[in-house]
Structure formats: structure tokens, C-alpha cells
Simulated assay, not measured.
Amino acid sequence: MNFNVKKDVIQLTSMWKGERFPDGRPRVPDHYLKALHALTLEEVWKPIFVKGYINQFEGELKLLHQDGRKLIGRAVTAVYCPTRPDLNECAMDIGREEGRTGTYNQWVIDSLVEGDVCVIDMYDKIYKGTFLGGNLTTAIANRTKTGGGVIWGGIRDVEQMKQVPGVQVFYRGIDPTPIREFVMTGFNTPTRIGKAICLPGDIVFGTDSGVLFIPAHLVPEVVDGAVKTKVKDMFGFEMITQNRFTTAQIDKNVWTVEMLDLLMEFIRNDHRAEEFQEIDWSEEYDLAINGDPNDTQSAL
């Protein structure tokens, strides 16, 4: 067993073809992270879901800040389990051989770089499962600049954590106890957060509704698809208000040529849609003409 193994991370994320960090994680370009801040959960979720990535969202989490701020960044993942003396001795020995110091949660924080988010499976442990407190949240802010954490477990020192500027944390519960009696079993490995699965380098998209993990290799397509969904929704609301189309027609995955033509007219002539004028809709026209074998009247 080893922790944060570059070749394993590359193998896990082999569908990513772009730049990587020294630890092997995909380095999704910053401009995509910035673009995601302007999008809603549903706009981002849809292109992932229709591609079969159906276990990427978890909504059963609490938020450190209830002020509408998003948490967007590249995932650094870790998995823990209840303590067992021989397993703990083994894991700590491996960590020391790899040059790691401090506790298991400090190992993760020490690896973070700008734009990262720690994604932690603490197996829903809250009592003595407080992965973050005031000090480590401050360390996250210093290292990531705009990051935070998704913790399937507990946090402590909440008053202190809330004073740390620029971070957002999703968590399961609060307890005053310090973290104790746990063992690391994976570092930058596949990590389960409730009903969702996250790989190292996934893009964390956290909103008031919950957290979505976007596979790195899908981010460019997801962002472009979400932008299309945004303008289609704008147009759709207008058409429903004018009784031009029904909600059933608007909600179909594949629109007709007539609907697409009207959408193009809307984008050209409505000032609200000016920012969408450079989008390529050739794929949508191709589906409208030739059909989509995977389309079964969905209302996503």
C-alpha cells in the first residue's frame, strides 16, 4: 500500500488528455473553473447525467456558509476507516517512508495547491471525526486561495472556520472533539461521498443544493453544454409564455429544426442572448434531422 501514487492517478483518469499536476491529477484549465461560477447546478448536471454519470451528486450535506457562495476546484481525495492497531502502524510506517509528517488529515492539507478542494470520506464519523477545524481551514485557505472541503464526516471550531476568508466547506455534522481513532486507506484514490463517487482531479461544483463531481475529461463539454442549456432555458421560458410551444416540447432532449431556427432568431435579436451568439449548434441540427437513438422523450 502506498499513498498518492502518480501512476495510479494517471491510470484512474486515463480519459483526461491534457496537462497534469506533478501528482498525476488532471489540471483542468482555470478558465473552465471561472466559467462554472456563472452556471447553475442543473445546467452543469444535465450533460453529465445524459452521458451515464448518474452517481455524481450528493445533497445530504451541511454548509459552513449559507450565503450563496459556490465551492469550485480540483479534487484531492482521501479515504479513511476506523482505527485498528496493526493497520494504523502499517499506514504510519508507509507515510514516514514517503516523507509525511503529522496526522493523516495533515498529509492531505500539506499536498494542496492553488485551486484545490479536499474531498474526504470520513465514513460519516462526526464524534472524534472532525477532519477540519480552525487551524486546518486556515491552512486550506493559504494553500488553495479559493478552495475548501467536502467532508463526509465532522468539523469543529466552526466560529473560527467562519472567520477564514474565501473558503466554503460541506460537511455532515459538528462536534467539539478533536479527530481521533482513524486510519488512512487511500490518498488520491476513488472516494465515495454519500451516493456520489469522486476521482482525483474531478472538478468539485458545490452549491446551496449540494455537491456535484464533474469528471475532468468531461469539463469542456459540460461547460459548453451548460451554456447551451442556459440559453435554451431562456428561450424556452419565452416560448412557453407566448404559448408557442408546450413544456413537453421544450423539455425534450432533441429539438425540431423549427424550434432550433426560432432559437437562432432569438439569439440574434434578443439583447439577453448576445453572449451566446458564437455558439456552434451544428450538432443539435444534426440530431434534429437524423434523430438521436438514445432519446426517449426525456424531461431532464
Rank of each mutant, 00 (worst) to 15 (best):
N290W: 15
N243P: 12
T77K: 09
E221I: 11
K34G: 06
V219L: 06
K17V: 07
G194Q: 00
P47I: 02
L212H: 03
T144R: 07
D233H: 08
V158M: 11
F187V: 02
E42A: 11
W152I: 01
F131D: 00
F245P: 03
T177R: 15
K46D: 02
I267D: 01
G154D: 05
V254H: 08
F182R: 08
D116I: 03
Q242V: 08
Q297F: 13
S14I: 06
M264T: 06
G225V: 05
C198M: 09
F276L: 10
P190D: 06
E43W: 02
G18M: 10
E221M: 11
T241L: 14
K228D: 01
G95H: 10
A273G: 10
G173I: 02
V119F: 06
E43Y: 01
F266Y: 14
M259I: 08
I10V: 14
G206A: 04
V113N: 03
E238K: 13
I94E: 09
V119I: 12
A35M: 10
V231F: 07
E258F: 06
N55M: 03
I240H: 05
D261R: 07
V223R: 01
Q56F: 01
H31W: 14
L132P: 00
F235K: 02
K17R: 13
N290H: 15
L12Y: 13
G68F: 04
M122A: 08
V79M: 05
T177I: 12
T83I: 14
L263H: 02
I289Y: 12
P29Y: 02
C118H: 05
E114F: 13
V219K: 02
T296K: 15
K7E: 14
G102S: 13
R192H: 10
I289T: 10
T103Y: 05
W16M: 04
